[in-house]
Design a protein around this nucleic acid. Structure first.
Length: 817
RNA sequence: GCCGCGGUGGCGAAAUGGUUUACGCACAACACUUAAAAUGUUGCGAGCGAAAGCUCAUGUGGGUUCGAAUCCCACCCGCGGCACCA
């Protein structure tokens, strides 16, 4: 019978579902638990090839762990809240909930066609009230522990549409809809204090088994910088301006200060500023700029001097002018800087434009280039023009000047982070409601936990309101409630939560998905967490992966979980491109539909091809023609079985072990293949594992080996993680009653993989001149005797003196003449 | 601009200091066939050569080494992330 994937794949998927073989028990005697997880998909409607690339090779790994004696849990779910559901709803006039559930249903079917070991009994869907009840509960814990606060946050605001705009909707400072000028407006929003965990988030990275590049991205994102906070007093005034710098060594080169437009000192000095009108005008102008605009004209720096006020440089008592300029941002450091134009390019640009003095204080090894420097020198060097510090290396001077100023109480050491607090409010319908109420008398109050979940009401109009508020604000039924504290009338928060919150804890829920009284029980969390290996795209290197770490650390501090990192191991798959090497997109017409591929070649073939394509973390073009090779391989493997086995009539069919198999040459290759495949899967080098299997099949196919059951059983075990359906089918045809996926992974015999004879490379002066077949373990003396007397080599030596011999056992001999 | 990743046959790639091009695709010839498909066998980096063989080739240029795709330096190209962070 020919190989027919359509038939056997459906058959085994049903059988596995029926037997519940992949259901993860919390404890299995004698086995260690292994929590394997992939990034759960957003239910966009269809599983695309990128999902397959994430999930299929990851499943190979999970199956491999399973066969290696681990009690593996591999759960799946849906990240179901979010904007696209609303957009689709608006476009197609169906409710976001219905749209989402329809998509989930379809994707569930597609996921099942992959043949993965998902434990569907643990499925979580973040938009189900049973789930978001606990998202809300967790919000309350953050709130009660002082990690959630409501604060005014600048947002892009269109005064004409009366709405908040995302950065993308305010391109060029104009409202996307009405083209009017967008301004920066402060709006009350909920924030999570992730910044208070900056240091722990940074330190925790050190011990994680994560890609180094991902760790670097998180470190940069957190952006810790150590420096000095220096007080600049203001002449004839009680006020002073603290500035933060990492380059205290350049203090003598400070020729002016700059404060951000939002800096409070401007208000304080109002009466002193001679050109106040002008300054206020500038501040108004900069308010009009969106953050994006401020970034877009990086080179064109503008600012206005605060006339009538001067700051005093604490190192030399010199008076310097103060400017307000929007190249300084309020939310980092102190919102004010000391400008050293000779040694900072931003200050340099500004100083050039406004004709401010540039004083060089660090001499680098690279000269600035002539008398008119064209850019600042930002490197290290020796100090000049710096009083008693002149001549000192800049890194020493940094410390000395710091100590000196600290003694005078004019400065203190300080650490600042780039990481901002996490804005979690969304003025959107399709998300989990924030479980808070506002009472005129008692201010913000948490909803009592017993009243959770705060259900997302089924309103008709879920379109954005155009008033900067969530569509929920229109539902009187939803808003009006009573204050949990005083019992008076109160109003619900109408913002919903950022969907990143839902995905920041789903890995906890998988451990105990049906629990109605807790987000997860202590016992179940203990059984499974933290996650051993998490597989997903590198695009989540910062946001999702950082938020999840923050959640875990916060819950750990609250005593809700007993670990402080959620994902011990992390691996990224690469990005799949279209057959033309371009990013897949409908407009380019290069989209590969996995369903079609499965229909044509079967899930096993698609799984294997994705493994075979190239290095897993690299991705690359998906070439449907390449699948032909895998298809041939699977057919060969199938044929191998057909030819090797007399049709078992069900009775006493052989279950064969490796030991029964006798041909020495194949036996050696078989054991080498076991080693190779084992090590390659462990290291997620799926491509080379598949090629090793191909080499084995090519060998087993040779006429001499056709009747060999032992090798075929072992081969099937090695094949099982990659092509679980075919392996199961052939395994059962061999007469085995138990599933192949319950079998133990084969072990290789180290003695059997050694070669008796090897190909010794002969080099003269490092160039390969011959290869000879010799017994393995040959000594240097034996080898060099062979070489010197070889006819082929004689012409290269031509009686020259051998100056040096390099001998690499079992590999090569190199004679230097 | 800064940080990170990569550049090897016609193509996907293998090799992480020791035979460059494993495995697969494509291509060609042959076998089977009335024929085609499927399958199998063989060949397949470039140049010179009848052949044995030699020379050259891992983005470019230099260096370290007995020996470099692999390590170091400079540069070019492609991709990803961040972006006035003081």
């Amino acid at each position: 019978m020919a190989y027919d994937p359509q038939k056997i794949e459906k058959k085994w998927q049903r059988a596995w579902e029926k037997s519940g073989i992949y259901k993860a028990q919390d404890t299995v005697g004698g086995k260690k638990n292994f929590y394997h997880m992939v990034m759960f998909p957003y239910p966009s409607g269809n599983l695309h090839i990128g999902h397959w690339y994430n999930f299929a090779p990851a499943d190979v790994f999970a199956r491999f762990k399973r066969m290696n004696g681990f009690n593996v849990m591999s759960p799946i779910g849906f990240d179901a809240f979010g904007l696209p559901a609303e957009n689709a709803a608006i476009k197609r006039k169906i409710h976001p909930k219905n749209w989402t559930h329809k998509n989930i249903e379809n994707m569930r079917k597609q996921l099942k066609s992959m043949g993965n070991i998902y434990d569907w009994s643990r499925e979580v869907v973040t938009c189900d009230p049973e789930y978001y009840k606990w998202t809300q509960w967790l919000f309350l814990q953050f709130y009660k522990n002082g990690l959630a606060r409501k604060a005014k946050v600048p947002a892009n605001w269109c005064p004409s549409c009366k709405t908040v705009l995302a950065n993308e909707q305010a391109e060029g400072g104009k409202c996307e809809r009405c083209d009017s000028q967008v301004i920066q407006e402060e709006i009350e929003q909920w924030l999570f204090k992730i910044s208070s965990y900056a240091d722990e988030l940074l330190k925790g990275l050190d011990n994680l088994d994560w890609p180094e590049t991902t760790k670097i991205m998180q470190r940069n994102w957190i952006g810790r910088s150590e420096g000095l906070q220096i007080k600049f007093s203001i002449s004839n005034s009680q006020f002073s301006i603290p500035v933060f710098t990492t380059r205290a060594d350049t203090l003598f080169g400070c020729t002016y200060l700059v404060v951000a437009p939002e800096h409070p000192i401007i208000l304080n000095l109002k009466s002193e500023i001679l050109n106040l009108k002008f300054v206020e005008q500038y501040i108004e102008e900069s308010k009009k700029k969106t953050e994006r605009d401020r970034i877009s004209d990086l080179k064109e720096k503008s600012g206005v001097e605060l006339k009538g006020v001067k700051a005093i440089n604490p190192v030399n008592g010199r008076e310097v002018p103060i400017f307000v300029a929007d190249y300084v941002i309020m939310h980092y450091g102190t919102g004010a800087i000391m400008a050293v134009p000779a040694h900072d390019n931003r200050d340099f640009d500004f100083a050039k434009k406004y004709n401010l003095p540039i004083i060089e204080v660090v001499k680098g090894t690279v000269p600035l280039g002539g008398t008119v420097p064209t850019m600042a020198y930002e490197g290290e060097g020796a100090l000049i023009n710096s009083d008693k510090f002149t001549g000192m290396p800049s890194n020493d001077a940094r410390e000395r000047i710091g100590e000196w100023l600290q003694k005078q109480e004019k400065a203190e050491k300080k650490v600042y982070y780039r990481l901002k607090d996490w804005l979690i409010s969304r003025q959107r319908y399709w998300g989990a409601p924030i479980p808070m109420v506002f009472c005129e008398k008692c201010s913000w109050q948490a909803i009592p936990e017993k009243d959770l979940p705060v259900l997302l009401p089924n309103i008709k109009n879920y379109l954005p309101t155009g008033e900067g508020k969530s569509p929920l604000a229109k539902s009187k039924k939803f808003i009006n409630t009573v204050c949990p504290k005083c019992g008076g009338s109160a109003q619900r928060e109408t913002d919903t939560m950022d969907t990143f919150i839902c995905s920041s804890w789903y890995y906890l829920r998988y451990a105990d998905p049906l629990n109605e009284t807790e987000f997860a029980s202590e016992e179940k969390l203990k059984a499974w967490l933290p996650v051993n290996v998490y597989v997903g795209g590198a695009e989540h290197s910062v946001l999702h992966l950082l938020y999840s770490r923050f959640f875990t650390k916060a819950l750990n501090k609250m005593g809700l979980v007993n670990f402080s990192e959620p994902f011990l191991g992390l691996r990224h798959q690469g990005i799949i491109l279209g057959p033309d090497g371009q990013k897949m997109s409908k407009s380019k017409g290069n989209v590969v539909d996995p369903d079609e591929q499965v229909k044509k070649y079967g899930a096993d073939a698609v799984r294997m091809y994705l493994c075979f394509m190239g290095p897993y973390n690299q991705g690359g073009p998906y070439n449907p023609d390449g699948l032909v090779g895998i298809n041939r391989f699977l057919n060969k493997a199938w044929g191998l079985f057909e030819k090797s086995t007399p049709t078992p009539k069900g009775v006493g069919a052989p279950t064969v072990s490796v030991g029964e198999f006798k041909n020495p040459k194949t036996e050696k290759l078989l054991h080498q293949t076991i080693k190779r495949v084992t090590e390659d899967i462990e290291g997620m080098r799926f491509n080379t594992a598949v090629s090793a299997l191909m080499i084995l099949v090519n060998e087993l196919q040779q006429p001499t080996y056709k009747k060999d059951h032992g090798s075929i059983s072992t081969f099937l075990l090695l094949l099982a993680p990659f092509a679980p359906h075919m392996a199961e089918e052939l395994w059962s045809r061999l007469g085995n009653k138990d599933s192949i996926h319950n079998q133990e992974w084969p072990k290789y015999d180290p003695k059997l993989i050694e070669e008796e004879r090897i190909n010794l490379i002969i080099q003269i002066n490092g160039k390969v001149r011959d290869k000879i077949d010799v017994p393995s373990g040959i000594s240097e003396k034996e080898a060099s005797d062979l070489v010197i007397n070889s006819e082929k080599i004689k012409k290269w030596l031509q009686g020259q003196e051998i100056k040096k011999t390099i001998f690499v056992p079992n590999k090569l001999i190199n004679l230097v003449v």
